[in-house]
Amino acid sequence: MQWTSIVAIYALVWVVCAFVLLPFGVRTHDEMGIEKVPGQADSAPANFRPGLIAIRAAGLAAIFTALFVLNYINGWIVPEDLIFFGPGAD
């Protein structure tokens, strides 16, 4: 596998991880006891920290990408293992 492929896979996995991590640890103004700005949505986050989400997504994406590359090298799960129905299914 070429290194450019690994970088592209990492970028895709990073985006997915970032979106998955977005709702965790976010609290609203009501939950934190902070006064809201007039016209603000009730669900608007009071403690949104994109840097922390990016760092967590980077770590999680590195783990998942490493597992993907190791699976590619060692062949632990191959496409034939994912056929549950149809010809060749046991």
Rank of each mutant, 00 (worst) to 15 (best):
D90P: 15
Y10M: 00
D81T: 03
I6V: 15
R56P: 01
V7G: 08
A18L: 12
G86P: 09
I53E: 03
E35R: 09
A58N: 03
G51Q: 11
D42G: 13
V26Y: 07
P23V: 07
A57P: 11
D90M: 05
A11N: 07
V69I: 13
T28V: 03
L70F: 09
V69N: 05
A62G: 07
T65F: 03
F24N: 02
E35C: 00
V37E: 15
A46M: 09
L12R: 03
N74D: 15
H29N: 10
G25R: 10
I34S: 07
V69Q: 09
L21F: 11
A57K: 08
N47W: 04
F85D: 04
I34R: 12
H29V: 02
G51E: 12
F48V: 09
I6K: 05
G75I: 02
N47T: 05
V7L: 14
A46I: 04
P38Q: 14
D90H: 07
V78G: 07
F48Y: 15
W14R: 02
L82C: 09
Y72Q: 14
D81W: 01
I55V: 15
I9H: 06
Y72C: 10
R27A: 10
L67A: 15
V78Y: 06
V37A: 13
V78C: 08
F84E: 01
L22T: 11
G86R: 06
I55S: 13
M1W: 03
P50A: 02
F24G: 00
H29P: 06
V13C: 10
I53G: 04
I63H: 08
N74L: 15
A46V: 04
I34Y: 14
A58W: 02
S43Y: 07
D42N: 11
A44R: 09
A66M: 07
P50F: 01
R27L: 12
A66I: 04
V78L: 14
I6T: 11
I53L: 12
L21E: 08
I83F: 06
V13A: 13
G86C: 11
W76G: 03
I6A: 12
R49H: 15
V78K: 13
A61T: 03
L52D: 14
I77D: 03
V7T: 12
A62K: 00
V37M: 13
I63D: 09
T28L: 02
S5K: 06
A8C: 10
M32H: 06
G86V: 11
I73H: 10
A66K: 02
Q2L: 09
L52I: 12
G25S: 11
A62V: 00
